[in-house]
Amino acid sequence: MILLLGIIYPLFITGIAQVCFHDKSNGSLVKKNGVVIGSALIGQQFDNKAYFTSRPSASGYNTLPSGASNLSLTSKKLQEQIIQRKKEFIAVNKLPSDQVVPSEMLFASGSGLDPHISPQAALLQVERIAEARHFSSEQKQKLKQLIENNTEKPLWNWLGETKMNVLLLNLQLDGIK
């Protein structure tokens, strides 16, 4: 039984997965000039003003191990973090002080590796990125187009949320000439 369930079964699945879904079963790695720069599924931290920012992460996008804040809604510590993050997001993007910031940009994710943000959160960052990259108005238009192209709608319009992958977005951002 151990042999069947512990060795044959997992290796059999590994075999099928490696043949049929080679990239996906190896972590959906993203390469740039032949170098692995990450996984399309795993979020990364972006501190540079010229890139779209990912969600806050309790583990700082460390994968070993993944982790969350596990703070409750009656936690003062969480409240302080949210106030701080909101201030920073508004300051860095030069937004009006009463701007509503999407909640995924304030609250930390469950895995600490959430690769996605909402399109609204991306749009709020456009001006900052255009400024940091000294974009012309034509390039800025391309940037907005990029956000639209990268927006993932719910599957068949019913499963999941509207979202976009920050790493893939930033990778294409580097391609805007």
Binding site: R55, L73, S109
Partner: peptide, 8 residues
């Protein structure tokens, strides 16, 4: 309340 939740 998105704390501890994933965007997707």
């Amino acid at each position: 309340y998105m704390e501890g939740k994933e965007t997707r």
